[in-house]
C-alpha cells in the first residue's frame, strides 16, 4: 500500500513537470537554424528527396554507425546470455502446432513481407522509410515464419555472415569517403544524380541497403535466439 502511494506521489511530481512543459509549449512558427540548414541545403548538397534520410545517413552518418554498433552489441549480448540456456534439442520440445490459417498464410505472406522490406530500404532516400524500417520489416517476416513453425531453424551462420559482410562493407564505404570525397561516410563517392531518381543521392541507397540487411540480420538473430531458447 505504501509502495503504491509512494509511486503515485512520484508520478504526481512528474505529471506536474509535464503539465508545466505542456502548457508553456509554443510551436515554433519557423524552422530553427539547424533544420533550416538541412531544408535549404539537402537537395543541392546530398541530392536525397527524403531529408530525414539525408540527416541520418550523411549529415549524421557517424551517429548512425554508432547506432548500428549499439544494435549489434544488443544482439550479441542477447545471444551470449541465452546461449548457456539452450540445452534441450528442438526434438525434445513439445510445441503445439500452428493453425492451418497461420501455417498457410505465412507461406504466402513471408516472401511478400521480405520483398516489402527490401523495397522500403532501397527507396529510403525517396520515400518515408529506410534501412532501419526495412530491416525491421524483414525481421517481422522472420517472426511470422517462427510463429508458424516454432521449431524452424534459421542458419545462424548465414545470419552472422550477412550481418558481418554488410557491416564491413558499410565501414569500407565510409573509409572510401575519406579517400574519394570530403570525409568519413561522405556519400559523394558516387554522383548525386537527379533528385527523385532511384539511383541518386550518391552512396545513400547503397549505405541504406547495407544498413537494412544488417539491421534485418541483427533483429532476426535476436528473434532466433529468443525462440530457440529452451522453455523452463
Amino acid at each position: 500500500m505504501i509502495r503504491k502511494f509512494a509511486a503515485l506521489l512520484i508520478l504526481a511530481g512528474i505529471a506536474a513537470l509535464f503539465m508545466e512543459l505542456l502548457f508553456t509549449y509554443q510551436p515554433d512558427p519557423e524552422l530553427n537554424t539547424t533544420a533550416r540548414y538541412y531544408a535549404d541545403r539537402t537537395a543541392a548538397d546530398i541530392g536525397a528527396a527524403n531529408i530525414v534520410t539525408a540527416i541520418v545517413v550523411t549529415y549524421r552518418g557517424l551517429d548512425t554507425l554508432g547506432e548500428v554498433t549499439v544494435l549489434f552489441l544488443a544482439a550479441a549480448i542477447v545471444g551470449l546470455v541465452l546461449a548457456q540456456g539452450r540445452r534441450k534439442t528442438a526434438k525434445e520440445r513439445a510445441v503445439t502446432p500452428a493453425g492451418e490459417l497461420l501455417a498457410t498464410g505465412s507461406l504466402f505472406l513471408a516472401p511478400l513481407i521480405m520483398l516489402l522490406g527490401v523495397y522500403v530500404f532501397v527507396n529510403g532516400h525517396l520515400t518515408p522509410g529506410g534501412g532501419f524500417q526495412g530491416g525491421a520489416i524483414i525481421a517481422s517476416g522472420m517472426l511470422l515464419m517462427l510463429l508458424a513453425d516454432p521449431l524452424k531453424h534459421f542458419s545462424h551462420r548465414l545470419i552472422a555472415m550477412v550481418e558481418a559482410l554488410s557491416g564491413m562493407i558499410y565501414v569500407a564505404i565510409g573509409l572510401l569517403g575519406i579517400a574519394l570525397a570530403g570525409g568519413f561516410l561522405d556519400s559523394h563517392i558516387l554522383p548525386n544524380g537527379e533528385l527523385g531518381a532511384l539511383f541518386s543521392a550518391g552512396a545513400i541507397p547503397l549505405i541504406y541497403a547495407l544498413i537494412g540487411l544488417k539491421v534485418g540480420a541483427e533483429f532476426s538473430a535476436i528473434l532466433a535466439d529468443l525462440s530457440g531458447t529452451e522453455e523452463l
Binding site: 515554433d28 524552422l31 537537395a43 531529408i51 530525414v52 547506432e67 549499439v70 544488443a74 542477447v78
Partner: peptide
C-alpha cells in the same frame, strides 16, 4: 522547402530511438 516542411531533426532522432528501444527491450527480455 524551408517554408513548407516540418522539422526533420526530431524525426531522425526518433528513428534512432525506436531502433535502440527494440535492442533494449530484447536485452531486458534476455
Amino acid at each position: 522547402a524551408a517554408a513548407r516542411i516540418i522539422d526533420p531533426v526530431p524525426q531522425a532522432l526518433v528513428l534512432t530511438a525506436i531502433v535502440i528501444g527494440v535492442g533494449v527491450t530484447a536485452l531486458m527480455l534476455a
